[in-house]
Nucleic acid binder design. Structure first.
Length: 825
DNA sequence: GAGTTTGAAACT
DNA sequence: CAGTTTCAAACTC
């Protein structure tokens, strides 16, 4: 927008014939057109969405009077074009859709006759890009009220449910990209002006073009007169709409900063997305949390003022990033849309474009940061955090933190979209071909980030190409996160990041090596279409694969949109639906206290079982299946859970379980599993791992891969359950120690220990007083956070450092109720 | 592999 | 929130 303004100013000074002398006329046009275009009033249309706009333009400009557009306004207003605009009925999706489809296929020759104009061909030349940036194509700027109306009246869900729109838009963008020749100077100008825009525009109340106006000249030169007129109109309208100023500025900033991608994906202009992004970035936790409670639709919320609305928007960003793009990718049959499709089309496009913008920005930022430029960090964050409703991060004394924290969330979201963009939501392929479901944050504050990070790192170049040691991944990952290091950030999030990275590495290794056995999780769903929690695959957050015997399965990448939507729905009903069923129910201090009192371990089934007949002795019982004892949450009858009964009678078994001598302990159960019993080694770690598989016995390998979109993972559950439910095994210690070392190097904070429970050679269960981040013991941990940390931590490292499984690495342990003592004792 | 049992998930 | 139904895993034969 700044560029527009500057451009406008420059244009005015150069040639006023193109510019309407009266702003009222401009606004009039804006209003007129807006009234006809309904929801297509946001700045995004102005700024970009070149094709659609050109389509619109085609309608308008293709008339014989096209040249008249450049004529004085008085004539223009009387021109058939203007009349046409006034008579233009509410958006007819067919136009845009059809046009975009044509673009998507690059079949410009097939353009409707009504649109057969030089514009079609213009896409193939460099002009398209220019128009994409500067020409508003007959979409005058909406008034603030109209903009708000458009903002609130559109359902994001509808947007996401318009795969066709997404599809076409995406293709269109690509088309433009492929066919656009961006003048180098233009790009450089844009880039060079980026900082200026960033620093100046966000707060400027009058959209000043900081960059040299000359930079905009190249764009002007090749721009048609009518384009200039439109630009003028737009800018006038913008100036008249104070509410959009910041947004426009920021939008422009992001637009510029994203290089080709952003240039291709015209940025939305409405305030909503940016505010949402701001919100999410500044408050990743709240953002994620909002995702949990957010509904797939935006109804009447005022995005600019309502956090909830913002959150919802953010959610939909994620959704769109992961769904619409996939739709595009998979090429699923696109559902035809109704008359609202047009508005939704733009809405969805806008939102997704925003993601792309952010993604591109982040990528740029990360690159800058990786180069060690702290200034770039702030600048980058400035870019990605264009504005805040209350304050601008850059102006805040705590810039770094404010910017960077948001940056994480933004980065995550952006990457998600990035994945979708480049890889078509490149799922992390598992050994069995199973893929992770990249889903929006499940609504678990800390986990959401992790999940997103998982997605992010799964596509991180370092992971794509890494063939070296796992630690290389860590290094790469740390580089990836480099921009975060310079600021205070959520260490939990870092832990998740690291764990996720290692986990991904594990995925790859497993996939490359012998992951098939554990990757396989077969369902046999007949009626649920694998879209309910009945389905183990779906519940675990993985796609069904060949070994599954399911019928009419929708839990496949090709139906990812459906999967995600279903997941979202389920999560809306139960935010913990995809959370591990076995969770830690108390923080570290509580654990210590419990242990000293020989009270039940901290891991329990999150909801408890409801067994009536099985006595909690069969895998019907989820507690038993999870390897944890029943708890007060259980409503079971005649509980005989050998991992511990809810009356606590079975819990003492865990004290001496690690040596395998438990007379009736859970370890005994584990040993009874079909797989070879783990040897009672000084370290229970090895046996623990084997026991994990044992727990998931029955020929069916355990579901070993967590879902990106959820933490539901039986393997984790097993790990956790083994660790705390009945057998205190060293599942966490080794990995965490290494992870802690790594993270300490990265973050400078001790991450050693995380309420790790381990077993000494003499089977004395210990609970190191360490607290991950040093906070666990004191903070009131929510189950998810607690669980997520531990699970990822353990699992990632256990698999990342397989040697730890084989080598009985000495582990400092504590005896129950005693001081910490070396394991070797 | 078919049928039964079981309890979670979903629904009302 | 409770009762009922649906569902698929777990289990048995």
């Amino acid at each position: 927008m700044c560029a527009f303004v500057g451009f406008l100013q420059s244009a005015k000074s150069q040639n006023k014939n193109f510019l309407p002398a009266s702003s009222s006329i401009s606004s009039h046009l804006v209003v007129q057109f807006f009234n006809h275009k309904t929801a297509d009033t946001d700045l995004r249309l102005k700024m970009g969405h070149e094709k659609d706009q050109q389509n619109e333009k085609g309608v308008v400009v293709e008339t014989p009077e096209r040249t008249q557009i450049a004529a004085p306004i008085s004539k223009f207003e009387d021109s058939p074009v203007f009349s046409y605009i006034n008579s233009l009925s509410p958006i007819k999706p067919v136009k845009s859709v059809h046009f975009t489809q044509t673009l998507s296929t690059l079949s410009f020759a097939s353009l409707p006759s009504v649109f057969t104009s030089p514009h079609a061909g213009s896409f193939k030349d460099s002009k398209s890009l220019k128009r994409n940036q500067f020409s508003d194509q007959s979409n005058p700027e909406p008034t603030s009220d109209d903009a708000k109306k458009a903002e609130t009246s559109e359902g994001i869900l509808n947007a996401t449910q318009n795969p066709l729109n997404e599809h076409t838009d995406f293709n269109s963008s690509n088309s433009i990209t492929d066919n656009s020749v961006v003048p180098l100077n233009s790009c450089s100008n844009l880039e060079s002006r980026k900082l200026n825009y960033e620093t100046v525009c966000p707060d400027t109340s009058t959209l000043k073009m900081v960059g040299s106006s000359a930079s905009s000249v190249p764009f002007i030169i090749n721009t048609s007169e009518n384009d200039l007129f439109r630009i003028e109109t737009e800018i006038t309208a913008i100036n008249q709409v104070p509410h959009n100023k910041e947004v426009s500025t920021c939008e422009w900033d992001s637009f510029i900063s994203d290089d080709s991608e952003l240039l291709n994906f015209n940025s939305p202009s409405d305030t909503e997305p940016y505010k949402v992004l701001d919100h999410s970035m500044l408050h990743p936790t709240s953002f994620n949390a909002s995702l949990m409670s957010a509904q797939p639709q935006i109804n009447g919320d005022n995005p600019s003022e309502n956090d909830e609305g913002l959150n919802r928007v953010a959610e939909n960003h994620v959704m769109i990033a992961s769904t619409s793009l996939n739709n595009f990718e998979v090429g699923e049959p696109m559902e035809e849309t109704d008359n609202e499709a047009d508005s939704n089309l733009y809405r969805g496009i806008r939102r997704r474009c925003l993601l792309f913008e952010i993604m591109g920005s982040w990528r740029k930022h990360s690159e800058d940061v990786s180069n060690g430029s702290s200034a770039n960090v702030s600048e980058s964050n400035q870019t990605v955090v264009p504005n805040d409703n209350n304050s601008h991060p850059l102006r805040n004394g705590n810039d770094s933190s404010r910017c960077i924290l948001p940056g994480i969330g933004l980065h995550l979201n952006a990457i998600a979209s990035n994945l979708a963009d480049h890889e078509v939501v490149k799922h992390e392929s598992l050994g069995s071909g199973r893929q992770f479901i990249i889903a929006p944050p499940a609504g678990y504050p800390s986990v959401g980030s992790s999940q997103e990070l998982m997605t992010t790192f799964s596509d991180t170049p370092s992971f794509e190409n890494d063939t070296g040691p796992a630690l290389n991944d860590a290094d790469d990952a740390s580089k990836t996160l480099g921009f975060v290091e310079n600021a205070e950030f959520n260490q939990i999030g870092i832990c998740h990041c690291m764990c996720l990275m290692f986990s991904l590495n594990f995925y790859r290794e497993r996939a490359e090596n012998a992951g098939e056995t554990e990757a396989c999780k077969r369902c046999n769903c007949k009626k649920s279409k694998c879209l309910k929690l009945y389905c183990e695959c779906f519940a675990a957050g993985v796609y069904c694969v060949e070994p599954c015997s399911c019928h009419e399965c929708f839990n496949k990448p090709i139906h990812e949109d459906t999967v995600l939507a279903t997941r979202k729905q389920i999560e809306s009903r139960n935010p913990l639906a995809f959370a591990p069923k076995v969770i830690k129910t108390s923080d570290h201090m509580q654990e210590v206290r419990d242990e000293s009192n020989n009270t039940p371990a901290s891991a329990r089934h999150k909801r408890g079982c409801n067994c009536k007949k099985s006595g909690c002795l069969k895998k019907y019982c989820e507690c038993y299946q999870g390897g944890v004892g029943c708890s007060v949450n259980c409503r079971c009858e005649g509980c005989k859970n050998t991992f511990g009964r809810k009356d606590g009678s079975g819990m003492d078994l865990e004290v001496n379980e690690c040596d395998g001598n438990g007379s009736d302990g859970s370890l005994l159960h584990i040993e009874a599993e079909p797989v070879s019993t783990a040897p009672a080694t000084p370290s229970c770690f090895g046996s623990a791992r084997q026991s994990i598989s044992l727990l998931n016995s029955k020929g069916r390998p355990p579901r070993s891969f967590m879902a990106i979109g959820s933490f539901s993972n039986q393997r984790f559950e097993k790990l956790n359950s083994l660790e705390s439910g009945g057998t205190k095994l060293q599942l966490q210690t080794v990995g965490e120690n290494k992870m802690s070392d790594i993270l300490e190097e990265k973050t400078g904070s001790s991450m050693s220990g995380s309420g790790v429970k381990s077993c000494s050679p003499n089977s004395k269960r210990v609970s190191p007083p360490h607290s991950i981040m040093g906070q666990r013991s004191s903070r009131n941990i929510d189950e998810w956070d607690e669980e997520g940390n531990d699970v990822y931590w353990n699992w990632a490292f256990n698999n990342l450092f397989p040697d730890n499984q084989d080598h009985e690495e000495p582990i400092v342990e504590q005896q129950l109720g005693h001081e910490e003592e070396p394991e070797d004792e």
